[in-house]
């Protein structure tokens, strides 16, 4: 099951050329571009690891693409997401965030039901990939 998250999440994965254009847009707006990676695909997982520092003094997207390539080389079997932070006073928040790399196989999520008091049902989802410890989740 394909994980969807962030901007463009229901489009097919962006090509490198499209990613470059998005990055250029971010840089032209003066946003700091960040790369993050994780192998815990749960949508509520907000704690992704950062790849290097935020990149805020770069003029051209090729510089960010260079980092993205080296991140893919190291963590090609994980999710990598690119986000851009706008530090303008009053905004100070992430303006765009999308996935730029995903594992080949995404096993999806298990739905768990729990009978509660009376006829109450409690539902929870957990990724199948979560069963293994971090770093071993996607076929290493």
């Amino acid at each position: 099951m394909r994980m969807t998250q962030g901007t463009f999440s229901f489009l097919p994965d962006l090509t490198d050329e499209q990613i470059t254009k998005q990055i250029q847009y971010c840089l032209d707006n003066g946003w700091a571009v960040n790369l993050e990676y994780t192998d815990d695909p749960h949508p509520r997982n907000t704690y992704w690891d950062m790849w290097g520092h935020p990149m805020f003094d770069i003029a051209d997207a090729a510089g960010v693409m260079m980092e993205l390539q080296s991140c893919r080389k190291a963590f090609g079997d994980r999710y990598i997401r690119l986000s851009a932070f706008d530090s303008t006073h009053g905004w100070e928040s992430v303006k765009i965030s999308f996935i730029v790399n995903r594992p080949k196989e995404e096993p999806g999520y298990r739905l768990r039901r729990q009978e509660g008091n009376g006829r109450n049902m409690r539902y929870t989802t957990e990724p199948y990939a979560d069963a293994k410890p971090e770093g071993e989740r996607y076929g290493v």
């Binding site: 003029a59 051209d60 090729a62 510089g63 960010v64």
Partner: peptide, 14 residues
């Protein structure tokens, strides 16, 4: 390596 790459990143496109 990180230092050199940092500079290269900044210089990209120029």
């Amino acid at each position: 390596a990180p230092k050199t790459k940092d500079i290269l990143k900044k210089a990209m496109g120029g």
